[in-house]
Simulated scan of single mutants.
Amino acid sequence: MTAATAPNRGPVRNRRTMSKAAVNAALVLAALYTFFPLVWMLVAAAKDPTGVMSGQVFTLRHFSLSANLSGLLHQDGGIYLRWFGNSLFYAGAGSVVCALVSIAAGYAFHTYEFPGKEKLFGVVLLGVLVPSAATVLPMYLLASKAHLVNTVWAILIPSVVNPFGVYLARVFSAGYVPGEVIEAARVDGASELRIFRSVGLPMLKSGFTTIMLFQFSAIWNGFFLALVMLSNQRLYPVSLGLYMWNDSVAQDAPSMISLVICGSVVAVVPVVLLFLSLQRFWRAGLTAGSIK
């Protein structure tokens, strides 16, 4: 019986080998599709305009990294540094305040009972379904009425509201803030604000960091809101400033292409560093609610 079944093992082993090879090939193709644009951008950032425009990115010629960095820092009076600082301010302040507001709202939805609670939370979830681009024009009209157009407040105020952050905060609160702890703090005579500050907020540190990282990335990469709200170049974030430079490449300044690519690479660095430095918090936060 063993001898009769032995010849069948060869085809089965071959099929398994072919299946593994097909899966590995698919993974390799997916990795190449994902990382090739990043590799191209990193190499192209070190090339002069001739090397980029001629398509000779992956050759050993036309390297000019130092000239690109120098041009990036001195172009138009060094305005790139101004754009970079604006983005750090918009993303840093907006993400921290947004995370705090979202955590407070999510904590309240989880902790307190009040009339219309679930209906109000349904409105928050409805806000998650609305594309952010669809709200830019109404926000512009409101900012125009309030005389906030072309000011930093036109970018900061919309950045602190994030319905998805409120939803995440409620999930984190359900997973990390036991009701027994809150009741014990109330028995000890602590006020609701004191409970949130001393009990709830420390327990939601992972949720705060996760929401802050998501919002920081969204604000840093945001473009359309700044395009509509701002006309003063000194208030531009780095994404809008690079877009304007890239627009000049298509018109009459092809030599700017190296500065645009180099500036794009430099603009990625803060987001990467932030994610790497805070990964232990947001990686822990992704498991919220999985263990009770």
Rank of each mutant, 00 (worst) to 15 (best):
V149S: 07
Q279R: 07
G241M: 02
N150Y: 14
S87P: 06
L276C: 01
R9T: 10
G263N: 00
Y176V: 06
L142G: 05
A133C: 08
A190Q: 11
A25G: 14
V238M: 10
L69V: 03
H74L: 14
A226V: 08
V57I: 09
M139Q: 14
S144W: 15
K47N: 05
L27K: 10
Q251E: 11
F224E: 07
L69W: 05
L100S: 06
R82A: 04
L141S: 08
R194F: 14
P49A: 11
K119Q: 06
D188S: 14
G106M: 03
V136C: 00
T5P: 02
Y243N: 12
G289Q: 03
F216G: 00
N221M: 07
A253F: 05
V96C: 07
S255P: 01
V96L: 12
V269P: 04
A45G: 06
V177L: 12
N68P: 09
L29V: 14
M244N: 04
L42V: 15
A154F: 02
V199N: 05
D76V: 08
W40N: 01
E113K: 12
L129A: 15
T59I: 08
M256W: 05
V136R: 00
I261V: 10
L129G: 13
V161P: 04
L230A: 04
L274E: 00
A288P: 02
F58I: 05
I157P: 03
K117L: 06
P254V: 03
G241T: 01
A26M: 14
F114K: 10
A21G: 05
L137Q: 12
A30G: 00
T209C: 10
G285Q: 05
G116W: 09
V249I: 13
V123N: 11
S248F: 01
G94M: 10
K119C: 01
S217E: 00
G179L: 06
W220A: 02
T209N: 01
A21K: 07
R15P: 02
V96E: 04
Y243L: 11
A284G: 13
P163Q: 15
V266D: 02
L100A: 08
Y90P: 01
L278R: 04
E180T: 12
S102Y: 04
H110N: 09
S64P: 00
L259C: 00
Y80R: 11
R280F: 11
I157C: 02
F114P: 10
F109N: 04
M53T: 12
A174C: 10
Y243K: 12
S198Q: 15
P270S: 05
A250E: 11
L81N: 01
Y33K: 00
A185D: 09
S258T: 05
A44H: 05
F275T: 00
M256G: 02
S206M: 06
G207N: 12
G165C: 13
A190D: 13
G263I: 03
V149Q: 02
L100R: 02
A93H: 07
P49V: 11
N8Y: 06
V272R: 00
S87E: 01
W220G: 00
